[in-house]
Design a protein around this nucleic acid. Structure first.
Lengths: 166, 166
DNA sequence: TTGGAATGTCAACAACACTGACATAAAATG
DNA sequence: CATTTTATGTCAGTGTTGTTGACATTCCAA
């Protein structure tokens, strides 16, 4: 509690540039930790963060279309396509032609893809679990609230959809 | 409060994979928001995130050496050097030869550099301020606690040093 | 049947990270 | 003083991830 800022009710003090700057730097350093463990695993497999993101969201929403994934990841189709192609070539992702709309490709993890996904997410969850445990339940609730408030509305929409899903 | 997880004292429930996954996705989407505003400004100036990081930490610790900046940013000297060179060429950063140890270069923002720094950090603070305001003081305290627990020890050390400084 | 949407592909390019090798200057140490 | 180490800079090459732009294919829908 020592340094977490003035908290006198509807405090204004905690919104000083000073406090905000600390939050910004905390976000920067924490994100590095957040990605460090998966990055190590990915390096072994000759993949990058983009592959992790694709694998993560395909796992989360099996059968999602390329367009939907594009919207979630916020990259161009060319960029995503490069990543998807290698994942498909390597047999980690399967792209099934849509039955209702055959222009669409529905994306699924193969068994091998699911294995990598579990390896990556277990590493990431493990750090998150340790941080949650250290900070305590109330801190976690606050953490989630601030993060959600920080998102762009579009991203908050995607986040909410994924939350409902599972 | 609706969805922030079970909070029954020393709850174990909130450490389910489900809850952890939500935290992971929140972190991903929030970081996008976190960098969105500076990215737009940087694009206008033909700079990238690497320039932002350099400018930010030079502003935070004026007179810092290249080696110290290297440790904070966690990149190679070649990578940092490319960025520093353009910033110096463009007159945003000044590198003064050390007086005590003349091998060292001490880095400072010029007036123009300080102008850009304020522009970037004001944009970033503005979003952070809105998120803090929306989430409330207690949430902010929790946010900071979880972020700090998520850092690698090295990064936590750098973070702590910067905190003390100002 | 035509228009537009969804997807894929090719080419070129830029930012930013990496490794490895080498150069210079100066401090530190023997 | 000679040698080693440290701090920094630079050159060359490479990889990942992003970007634009152009174009082809497929196929639903008006």
């Amino acid at each position: 509690m020592a340094d977490t800022g003035a908290q006198s009710g509807e405090s204004l003090l905690f919104l000083t540039d000073e406090q905000l700057r600390k939050g910004i730097e905390a976000m920067f350093f924490a994100y590095r930790g957040f990605t460090a463990d998966p990055d190590r695993i990915l390096a072994e497999h000759e993949y990058g963060r983009a592959h992790h993101r694709a694998v993560h969201f395909i796992n989360r929403a099996p059968g999602t279309t390329v367009n939907n994934l594009l919207a979630i990841l916020g990259v161009t189709k060319q960029s995503l396509n490069r990543v998807l192609r290698t994942l498909i070539e390597d047999g980690l992702v399967e792209a099934r032609v849509g039955t209702r709309d055959r222009r669409e490709r529905h994306l699924y993890l193969t068994e091998a893809g699911a294995v990598l996904e579990r390896k990556l997410s277990e590493a990431q969850r493990s750090r998150m679990r340790a941080a949650y445990r250290q900070a305590g339940p109330e801190a976690v609730a606050g953490f989630r609230q601030v993060l959600e408030a920080m998102m762009d509305p579009d991203m908050r929409r995607h986040f909410a959809e994924l939350k409902e899903r599972g």
